[in-house]
Design a protein around this nucleic acid. Structure first.
Length: 798
DNA sequence: GAGCACTGC
């Protein structure tokens, strides 16, 4: 690879037939070529080695991998835990906006050694790794501790907590937080802000404290950790609340919850009377839900004088948050990250897969021990790299460690994902090829080198066309800093950026907030439910744009969630309560009226679970497709929605989970996905019983079992929500959308791919190489006309 | 005849 300041050039693309020496160059990274960032960070005092995993990890959203994977850790594998060096806390004062240094605290570091537990017989204990099944996760944590041992544990943990940088400035932080109603708290990774700040405030709050997280696993892990620190049983003083799992009681004073859950609480009681302090964590991620929360809370602050708000963020975008809350004070807390050298290419590359491979080989040949994490935009690039690496690895020089390539992306089966956590034999080096999932959601231990393509995939909603596109786009500076930081979690590391320093300079500072490129139909319905009439002038942290809002209002009017005055209807209120997209809620409510609710709940539940029907491996693709077609008689005739219903029926019929698992494997379906489908189904049923006040709503169907279903009613119900997602068949087997006349193709993964139909309805329309309809059903023209009359009528009114 | 980043209720 040719890096800046290095005359070596890329001559050929890396291919199988390229002579090995072409790629086996000795490393040519030029350490002198560093960014201003690096120079700056080099000037900072080098930090001493710390590997206090417990404290560092509770700041990160450790992810669920599989509960199925048992990982054995060999005996005698001691973890040496050292506390961080003395740290400073800087604060930006509200009046002069200058950075003040808080007093430095000298801190002698106690050395704590933690031995991994054994089973008493000297054999290593089997450690269960991250499960996202909370039931089993709790089991994995062992027996409930007695009150005495909880207090003892809490005292032990206090020693570690006291070494955290944030602990040193406890009093000062508390007094600053007490003075103001809103605080923006910037804390670097590992500062301990998510675990410590809420505990500092606990004695000062009359009511409860809520801490929101973008991901459920983060909420659960933080609550578990903080409960231990506080000597509380989980769910007692400290608890959590996420979908399908609530570990709180009326005693709970500190509650970690997903931001979706807090929004749901807002929908029920707009003043959130339970809480006296609300902390929004990970605000820099700017998810749609966090953005919405921040808007709602801004309005709530004017109504509730006793409410305090803390916005926690990892990057320096504090100004925007501060301005939004009328120049709120900003506090800055330093974390404990190691220095990461950043190296750039001298010239831009065209082929990112080729460049990645070459860099991996170079790093492997020339750098000290430590794993390599490669950020690539998507599955396609990752699979290519893995394939190439597997071929060349055995032929690489013996002096260098053997490369073990490991893919990591969300659609990968959990067992495969978990492999990145497995320890390797000596003289081997993990090369983890990951999407953005490794940027925030999954923290891989042992990484010392990051190779960053500077690219990611991003879904962009085009409200004019009613379709989403999936684009490969450059990341932001904040994102590339975050990626580089993955190399500095345990010791000093290096980040190799597969772009020039010039190109880095051209990147946007922050990632564009999700809300400005998303379909906002659901957020708009939430606002309407909260009684906000003037959607266009609401306190948006980021305004989604007038056109996007108007298109959402039209959508909501079409599904009868809003009346022609733009007021929320009785139906709309019910839709806002259901934990689904408004379109799917509308479909359910219609199905209730027409008597096919049970079937529609089943299908909607399947639609709510990602990666349920997986893409079979290419070698078994035809076989699996054949099996699915012959098994799903209705699906092969009417399309994917009915296939889902048939698959779920089959799944339920099996007696035990072993059979279910086997069956899923044969048809390339997600076993875990189906378990989730059943949870979603149960939840939706409960909601429907609540809305209809009919306790016996689903009783009859349970008794009769599989009564023949009225296919026409089911499809008609779906047309209520997806009438604008329809297309008419043309003589040449293509389809044109009814909404805009665009050419659209049935996605080859669909049951009705290659079949001829008069008209189709689809739940997704994604533009990749061309416009594809996914989750496709065959419908009658007469059905479409019937449903379309409502659409036409609505168009003349709006 | 294609291949989709990541979350949440």
């Amino acid at each position: 690879m040719s890096w800046k300041g290095n005359n070596q050039k890329l001559h050929t693309k890396f291919e199988d037939d390229v002579p090995k020496n072409e790629v086996l160059n000795t490393p040519e990274y030029n350490d002198e070529v560093t960014s201003t960032e690096v120079n700056k960070s080099k000037k900072r005092k080098r930090k001493k080695k710390t590997s206090n995993d417990l404290e560092a990890k509770d700041q990160e959203n450790q992810t669920n991998i599989s509960k199925d994977v048992n990982i054995e850790i060999s005996n005698g594998n001691d973890l040496t835990v050292e506390s961080p060096n003395s740290k400073q806390v800087k604060s930006i004062d509200q009046e002069d906006r200058k950075i003040h240094k808080l007093p430095k605290v000298n801190n002698k570091k106690p050395k704590i050694s933690t031995k991994l537990k054994t089973n008493g017989n000297g054999k290593p204990k089997t450690v269960n790794f991250f499960s996202d099944d909370e039931e089993e996760q709790r089991d994995g944590r062992g027996i409930e501790l007695s009150k005495e041992s909880r207090i003892l544990k809490s005292k032990q943990l206090l020693k570690i907590r006291e070494t955290l940088p944030i602990y040193k400035s406890k009093d000062e932080i508390i007094s600053k937080l007490q003075k103001e109603r809103v605080t923006i708290l910037i804390g670097e990774t590992g500062s301990g802000k998510s675990t410590q700040i809420p505990q500092f405030l606990l004695p000062l709050n009359k009511k409860s404290i809520a801490v929101t997280q973008p991901r459920r696993v983060a909420a659960i892990n933080l609550a578990t950790r903080v409960a231990e620190e506080a000597g509380s049983a989980l769910g007692d003083k400290v608890g959590y609340s996420v979908r399908f799992d609530n570990k709180t009681t009326h005693h709970t004073k500190l509650k970690y919850l997903t931001d979706g859950m807090l929004l749901r609480e807002l929908m029920v009681q707009s003043s959130l009377p339970e809480y006296s302090t609300i902390i929004i964590d990970e605000a820099h991620e700017r998810t749609v839900l966090t953005d919405l929360l921040m808007g709602f809370l801004k309005e709530l602050l004017t109504k509730r004088n006793d409410l305090k708000l803390i916005i926690m963020s990892a990057t320096l975008d504090a100004e925007k948050f501060s301005k939004f809350y009328n120049d709120a004070q900003i506090l800055y807390v330093e974390g404990k990250m190691y220095n990461v050298d950043r190296l750039y290419l001298g010239e831009p590359v065209e082929d990112i897969v080729d460049a990645s491979i070459k860099s991996i080989v170079q790093v492997n040949n020339g750098e000290l021990e430590g794993d390599i994490l490669v950020f690539l935009p998507g599955q396609e690039e990752i699979d290519k790299c893995v394939g190439l690496l597997e071929r060349i690895a055995p032929g690489l020089p013996r002096e260098a460690p053997l490369i073990v390539p490991l893919p990591l992306y969300a659609a990968l089966p959990p067992v495969e994902q978990a492999k990145v956590f497995l320890p390797l034999k000596a003289r081997r080096r993990k090369v983890i090829l990951a999407t953005n999932i490794a940027e925030t959601s999954i923290t891989v231990p042992g990484v010392r080198y990051v190779i960053d393509s500077g690219l990611r995939k991003v879904k962009v909603w085009r409200h004019q066309l009613g379709l989403s596109t999936l684009l490969t786009a450059p990341v932001s500076k904040a994102s590339s800093t975050q990626r580089a930081g993955r190399a500095g979690r345990e010791r000093e590391g290096k980040a190799f950026r597969l772009y020039t320093e010039d190109d880095y300079g051209k990147l946007p500072n922050q990632t564009e907030p999700e809300i400005s490129r998303s379909n906002v139909t659901s957020p708009v319905l939430m606002l309407k439910r909260a009684g906000i009439d003037d959607i266009l002038n609401w306190s948006w942290l980021e305004h989604p744009g007038q056109e996007s809002l108007l298109s959402s209002l039209t959508q909501l009017y079409q599904i009868k969630a809003l009346d022609d005055q733009g007021k929320i209807t009785k139906l709309g209120l019910q839709m806002a309560i259901l934990p689904l997209e408004p379109q799917l809620s509308a479909i359910l409510l219609n199905a209730y009226e027409t008597g096919c609710l049970t079937q529609v709940v089943d299908i909607v539940s399947c639609l709510s679970v990602d990666n349920l029907v997986m893409n079979p491996q290419s070698e078994s693709r035809d076989e699996v497709n054949e099996k699915r077609l012959s098994l799903c008689i209705l699906g092969s005739k009417y399309g994917d929605l009915l296939m889902l219903k048939e698959l779920l029926d089959f799944y339920i019929q099996f007696d035990n989970s072993r059979e279910r698992q086997q069956w899923c494997k044969e048809l390339s379906l997600s076993f875990r996905g189906f378990k989730n489908v059943l949870r979603v189904r149960n939840q939706i049923r409960q909601y429907m019983i609540m809305l209809t006040k009919d306790q016996h709503l689903f009783d009859e169907d349970e008794e009769i079992g599989n009564k023949p279903m009225d296919i026409s009613s089911v499809l008609k119900a779906f047309l209520i929500g997806f009438v604008s997602n329809t297309a008419i068949g043309m003589p040449d087997r293509s389809y044109r959308t009814t909404a805009s006349g665009q050419l659209i193709s049935v996605h080859p993964s669909s049951m009705i791919f290659g079949k001829k139909a008069d008209a189709i309805m689809y739940t997704d329309y994604v533009y990749t190489t061309k416009g594809y309809a996914r989750n496709v059903s065959v419908i009658d023209l007469s059905m479409l006309q019937e449903a379309g009359s409502h659409l036409l009528a609505s168009k003349t009114k709006v």
